[in-house]
Design a protein around this nucleic acid. Structure first.
Lengths: 228, 228
DNA sequence: AAGTTAAGCGGACCTCGGTCCGGATACTCG
DNA sequence: CGAGTATCCGGACCGAGGTCCGCTTAACTT
């Protein structure tokens, strides 16, 4: 039911395919089976468990920063190579650590009770979704951050800050009653180079579509008439 | 006039403060002076120029990936330590490389002609801003991406993908005529752990404000009545 | 012009993520 | 139960980012 195999996306570091990857792109919500630990050799499964346990202990005792691949390997009394074979890279390991809560969360909005789950009107579900995400990030922040290289610095870039302030300033002139500071973050997110790269280079969307989406969002947010 | 000193934010790697940092946080648009290369010793200034030139050449000839700190140092016939003292870290170096176009861009929307610059109505300027950002990112993508560690992977995380698809699905039920795929990216950007961390931990905003902003954006985007 | 000193320099050094491959070992099949 | 093999293990190894510290030198002083 749930999509849980994502921590297994070990690309091609070792020529040993396992823990099947079910094409992240074309995923259909709900049609995903929970192929969690698929027929791992006995020792491999045991080591995997020990590694996760060791990593969790490290996080708890010394924070997410202390989770170096060597430290985890040592704490699990296992070779370094084993960690990489199993989880691909550091991100994979941290992601696997987050897997449990991730599954619970997916269950909540896919099959759980309203307003998060099916049954409530869509707008209501959207509101609940955001609240739930915020709550989840509030715990786990360390781990979620650690699982994303360079994350803490992304919003301290002064150049970006200037651009965002400019957007906020413009917004204030149009929708003075809104929380323009946060609104500007939302809008700027759409112009993030990483997102642009993903959409144009990896998904093949034409730039014109991104432009259209930007204009559309601006109109929706400001309440302006489209193409005014 | 322009904010250009950002590449100088060399934190505390070496105990030699220079290239003054003008507090990135409390910056007032327009009140920033272009303190570019502030009283650097002659040899230091020369090395700085040589490093930037060498880095630019490496980018042009072998792509942004080839810009390793050692390679730049070697290409500039300079010690590795010098690169780090001048630019702080790799991100700082890449950022400095982007500085020129950044300044031009800032000039365009701060003091340039409408619709990007002052004179046009705010909504018009917002639309133009997005178009300009997209165009700029379209060139320079390599560099902008390289300046942000781990950027390419951010949107290939399957777990995130599931969440985003869920949001897109809900959006489709409410605003079927919109580009819900891209709209979902926009909304998800507001729930990015890195952003949440920045706003709550670094800026000190209460979680309730983030929740409010989320609800507000959902309402604006879907056209729902607030608190419906 | 010589002395003083703070700034700058360079490269050895460290850590950590990631790779490789020779050897070990759990499952399978006869 | 014994041989065969695909899988797995471990740690040596590599490259790149980042740090340190003793030496050098530009710039100011008198």
């Amino acid at each position: 039911m749930l999509y849980a195999g994502f921590m297994a996306a070990v690309p091609p570091p070792f020529p040993t395919p396992q823990e099947p990857v079910d094409h992240p792109e074309l995923i259909q919500l709900g049609s995903v089976l929970e192929a969690d630990e698929p027929c791992l050799r006995a020792d491999a499964a045991r080591n995997r468990a020990r590694l996760l346990e060791a990593a969790a202990r490290l996080v708890a005792e010394r924070g997410a920063d202390a989770v170096t691949m060597e430290a985890v390997a040592a704490a699990a009394s296992v070779g370094k190579g084993t960690v990489f074979r199993r989880f691909g890279d550091r991100t994979g390991l941290l992601t696997a650590l987050l897997d449990h809560s991730e599954k619970k969360f997916q269950a909540a909005f896919l099959t759980g009770p309203p307003p998060l789950g099916p049954g409530a009107p869509p707008v209501e579900r959207l509101r609940a979704f955001g609240r739930a995400m915020l709550a989840r990030s509030n715990d786990e922040l360390d781990l979620q951050l650690a699982a994303e290289p360079g994350a803490p610095r992304r919003f301290t870039n002064p150049a970006r800050s200037v651009l965002r302030h400019h957007v906020a300033m413009l917004l204030r002139q149009v929708v003075p009653d809104a929380d323009c500071e946060l609104l500007s973050h939302t809008l700027m997110g759409q112009l993030d180079p990483a997102l642009i790269h993903h959409l144009t280079k990896q998904c093949g969307l034409p730039l014109s579509r991104l432009e259209g989406a930007w204009t559309d969002v601006v109109d929706r947010v400001t309440g302006a008439s489209p193409a005014g």
